[in-house]
Amino acid sequence: MKVIFLKDVKGMGKKGEIKNVADGYANNFLFKQGLAIEATPANLKALE
């Protein structure tokens, strides 16, 4: 799943980066902790 990092995550990515991560990792950790959001077309447009 493609995500946009909202904060730096050690060993994974930096704020503003777009990366592919495992679905479970994104849903169970990154999204719940507020560290990333899904890289949807609307979210990608908002990032620009």
Score class of each variant (00 low, 15 high):
residue 30 L to T: 02
residue 48 E to Y: 08
residue 33 Q to F: 14
residue 15 K to E: 09
residue 27 N to H: 15
residue 26 A to D: 09
residue 4 I to P: 00
residue 47 L to F: 12
residue 1 M to F: 13
residue 42 A to Y: 09
residue 41 P to Q: 11
residue 13 G to P: 00
residue 35 L to S: 04
residue 20 N to V: 10
residue 44 L to P: 03
residue 24 G to F: 15
residue 46 A to P: 04
residue 42 A to I: 07
residue 30 L to W: 04
residue 18 I to T: 05
residue 7 K to R: 13
residue 27 N to F: 14
residue 38 E to I: 06
residue 13 G to F: 07
residue 12 M to N: 05
residue 42 A to H: 12
residue 37 I to S: 07
residue 36 A to G: 03
residue 48 E to R: 06
residue 19 K to C: 10
residue 6 L to Y: 01
residue 6 L to F: 04
residue 48 E to Q: 12
residue 48 E to I: 12
residue 16 G to I: 00
residue 33 Q to N: 12
residue 30 L to G: 00
residue 25 Y to M: 10
residue 21 V to P: 00
residue 35 L to P: 00
residue 15 K to T: 10
residue 28 N to R: 10
residue 4 I to W: 03
residue 24 G to C: 14
residue 23 D to V: 15
residue 38 E to W: 07
residue 38 E to P: 11
residue 21 V to T: 03
residue 26 A to S: 05
residue 41 P to I: 10
residue 26 A to Y: 13
residue 41 P to F: 12
residue 25 Y to E: 13
residue 7 K to N: 06
residue 7 K to A: 12
residue 14 K to S: 10
residue 17 E to N: 01
residue 1 M to A: 05
residue 4 I to R: 02
residue 47 L to C: 09
residue 6 L to I: 15
residue 41 P to E: 13
residue 37 I to F: 05
residue 14 K to V: 13
residue 8 D to N: 09
residue 33 Q to K: 07
residue 20 N to H: 14
residue 9 V to L: 07
residue 7 K to E: 14
residue 33 Q to E: 15
residue 1 M to V: 13
residue 18 I to A: 04
residue 47 L to P: 05
residue 19 K to F: 05
residue 20 N to P: 09
residue 39 A to E: 02
residue 30 L to E: 01
residue 34 G to N: 09
residue 26 A to V: 09
residue 42 A to S: 13
residue 34 G to I: 03
residue 2 K to W: 15
residue 25 Y to P: 06
residue 15 K to C: 11
residue 47 L to Y: 14
residue 27 N to V: 15
residue 6 L to E: 01
residue 44 L to Y: 06
residue 39 A to W: 08
residue 37 I to G: 01
residue 22 A to M: 11
residue 38 E to D: 05
residue 37 I to E: 07
residue 36 A to W: 02
residue 12 M to I: 14
residue 28 N to M: 11
residue 11 G to F: 07
residue 39 A to C: 08
residue 16 G to Y: 07
residue 48 E to S: 10
residue 8 D to P: 07
residue 2 K to C: 15
residue 46 A to C: 13
residue 25 Y to K: 06
residue 22 A to V: 10
residue 35 L to T: 06
residue 4 I to A: 02
residue 33 Q to C: 14
residue 10 K to Q: 15
residue 37 I to R: 07
residue 41 P to W: 06
residue 24 G to P: 10
residue 22 A to P: 15
residue 22 A to I: 12
residue 39 A to H: 05
residue 10 K to A: 14
residue 43 N to M: 07
residue 12 M to H: 12
residue 35 L to G: 01
residue 16 G to C: 08
residue 25 Y to N: 06
residue 42 A to D: 12
residue 14 K to P: 01
residue 46 A to F: 09
residue 48 E to G: 10
residue 36 A to F: 03
residue 2 K to R: 11
residue 42 A to G: 12
residue 31 F to R: 03
residue 44 L to Q: 06
residue 48 E to M: 09
residue 24 G to R: 11
residue 2 K to D: 12
residue 19 K to L: 05
residue 19 K to G: 09
residue 48 E to F: 13
residue 24 G to A: 12
residue 14 K to D: 07
residue 32 K to T: 12
residue 29 F to H: 12
residue 2 K to Y: 13
residue 9 V to F: 04
residue 10 K to M: 12
residue 13 G to R: 00
residue 14 K to C: 11
residue 43 N to E: 07
residue 34 G to S: 09
residue 6 L to S: 05
residue 46 A to M: 15
residue 21 V to A: 01
residue 3 V to S: 00
residue 17 E to G: 05
residue 16 G to F: 09
residue 38 E to N: 04
residue 31 F to Y: 07
residue 1 M to Y: 09
residue 7 K to H: 12
residue 23 D to I: 14
residue 29 F to K: 06
residue 44 L to G: 02
residue 21 V to Y: 05
residue 40 T to R: 04
residue 26 A to P: 05
residue 46 A to D: 12
residue 5 F to M: 07
residue 43 N to K: 02
residue 9 V to Y: 09
residue 44 L to S: 03
residue 34 G to L: 08
residue 3 V to Y: 01
residue 20 N to A: 10
residue 41 P to T: 09
residue 44 L to W: 03
residue 12 M to C: 13
residue 4 I to L: 13
residue 5 F to P: 00
residue 37 I to L: 12
residue 38 E to H: 08
residue 47 L to V: 07
residue 20 N to R: 14
residue 47 L to S: 08
residue 34 G to W: 05
residue 33 Q to S: 10
residue 18 I to P: 01
residue 8 D to C: 04
residue 2 K to A: 13
residue 22 A to H: 15
residue 3 V to F: 01
residue 5 F to C: 03
residue 11 G to Y: 08
residue 7 K to I: 11
residue 9 V to K: 03
residue 13 G to L: 01
residue 21 V to C: 11
residue 43 N to Y: 03
residue 27 N to K: 14
residue 18 I to C: 05
residue 4 I to Q: 03
residue 26 A to H: 07
residue 22 A to N: 13
residue 32 K to R: 13
residue 36 A to L: 04
residue 40 T to Q: 03
residue 8 D to Q: 04
residue 17 E to V: 06
residue 9 V to S: 01
residue 6 L to N: 01
residue 16 G to L: 05
residue 9 V to C: 08
residue 1 M to C: 13
residue 23 D to Q: 15
residue 43 N to V: 09
residue 40 T to W: 03
residue 4 I to H: 02
residue 31 F to I: 12
residue 10 K to V: 13
residue 19 K to Q: 08
residue 24 G to D: 15
residue 19 K to N: 04
residue 38 E to M: 08
residue 28 N to P: 07
residue 47 L to D: 04
residue 27 N to L: 14
residue 44 L to C: 07
residue 42 A to E: 15
residue 5 F to K: 00
residue 16 G to A: 06
residue 6 L to D: 00
residue 5 F to Q: 00
residue 8 D to V: 03
residue 40 T to E: 04
residue 34 G to Y: 06
residue 41 P to V: 13
residue 20 N to F: 15
residue 19 K to P: 00
residue 18 I to N: 02
residue 26 A to F: 12
residue 20 N to S: 14
residue 38 E to K: 09
residue 23 D to K: 15
residue 17 E to S: 06
residue 13 G to V: 03
residue 15 K to G: 04
residue 41 P to N: 10
residue 31 F to S: 01
residue 15 K to R: 10
residue 28 N to S: 15
residue 28 N to F: 09
residue 9 V to N: 01
residue 45 K to G: 07
residue 1 M to G: 02
residue 35 L to N: 02
residue 3 V to H: 00
residue 11 G to R: 04
residue 33 Q to V: 11
residue 45 K to H: 09
residue 47 L to W: 13
residue 15 K to Q: 10
residue 13 G to N: 00
residue 31 F to C: 05
residue 39 A to Q: 02
residue 33 Q to D: 08
residue 12 M to Q: 11
residue 46 A to Q: 13
residue 3 V to I: 11
residue 47 L to T: 09
residue 21 V to Q: 02
residue 39 A to S: 05
residue 35 L to W: 10
residue 47 L to E: 05
residue 14 K to I: 11
residue 31 F to K: 06
residue 28 N to E: 10
residue 3 V to M: 02
residue 31 F to H: 09
residue 24 G to E: 15
residue 7 K to V: 14
residue 13 G to W: 08
residue 38 E to R: 08
residue 22 A to D: 13
residue 10 K to D: 14
residue 40 T to G: 03
residue 13 G to Q: 01
residue 5 F to R: 00
residue 1 M to N: 03
residue 7 K to T: 11
residue 13 G to H: 05
residue 39 A to M: 05
residue 18 I to R: 02
residue 39 A to I: 04
residue 31 F to N: 02
residue 45 K to D: 15
residue 44 L to A: 03
residue 23 D to C: 15
residue 8 D to Y: 04
residue 17 E to F: 03
residue 23 D to M: 13
residue 29 F to N: 06
residue 17 E to Q: 13
residue 18 I to E: 04
residue 32 K to A: 14
residue 42 A to T: 04
residue 1 M to R: 08
residue 35 L to E: 03
residue 2 K to S: 14
residue 48 E to A: 15
residue 1 M to H: 00
residue 9 V to H: 04
residue 14 K to N: 12
residue 43 N to A: 11
residue 32 K to L: 12
residue 11 G to S: 08
residue 38 E to F: 06
residue 29 F to V: 15
residue 24 G to T: 14
residue 40 T to S: 11
residue 2 K to F: 12
residue 15 K to A: 12
residue 3 V to R: 00
residue 43 N to T: 09
residue 37 I to W: 07
residue 5 F to H: 01
residue 30 L to H: 00
residue 40 T to N: 11
residue 22 A to G: 08
residue 2 K to V: 12
residue 39 A to F: 05
residue 25 Y to T: 09
residue 44 L to K: 06
residue 40 T to H: 04
residue 48 E to T: 14
residue 45 K to Q: 14
residue 17 E to K: 01
residue 36 A to M: 03
residue 7 K to Q: 13
residue 35 L to Y: 09
residue 14 K to E: 08
residue 30 L to I: 04
residue 48 E to W: 04
residue 48 E to V: 10
residue 16 G to H: 08
residue 8 D to K: 04
residue 36 A to H: 00
residue 15 K to S: 06
residue 6 L to W: 02
residue 40 T to K: 00
residue 40 T to V: 04
residue 20 N to M: 14
residue 41 P to D: 14
residue 11 G to M: 06
residue 27 N to Y: 15
residue 8 D to S: 07
residue 47 L to A: 07
residue 28 N to K: 11
residue 19 K to Y: 05
residue 46 A to R: 13
residue 27 N to E: 15
residue 34 G to D: 06
residue 10 K to W: 12
residue 20 N to I: 15
residue 9 V to R: 02
residue 38 E to V: 06
residue 30 L to A: 01
residue 25 Y to I: 14
residue 29 F to R: 09
residue 33 Q to A: 07
residue 41 P to K: 12
residue 1 M to S: 06
residue 47 L to N: 06
residue 2 K to E: 13
residue 24 G to I: 15
residue 28 N to G: 12
residue 19 K to M: 10
residue 24 G to W: 13
residue 24 G to K: 12
residue 32 K to P: 05
residue 46 A to L: 14
residue 48 E to K: 07
residue 30 L to C: 02
residue 11 G to D: 10
residue 41 P to S: 13
residue 31 F to E: 01
residue 3 V to E: 00
residue 21 V to H: 01
residue 11 G to V: 02
residue 45 K to I: 11
residue 28 N to C: 10
residue 46 A to V: 13
residue 1 M to P: 04
residue 11 G to T: 08
residue 41 P to C: 10
residue 18 I to K: 02
residue 36 A to Q: 01
residue 12 M to T: 07
residue 30 L to P: 00
residue 28 N to W: 11
residue 35 L to M: 09
residue 12 M to S: 06
residue 4 I to K: 03
residue 33 Q to Y: 15
residue 17 E to A: 08
residue 31 F to L: 11
residue 29 F to G: 04
residue 46 A to H: 14
residue 28 N to V: 08
residue 48 E to L: 09
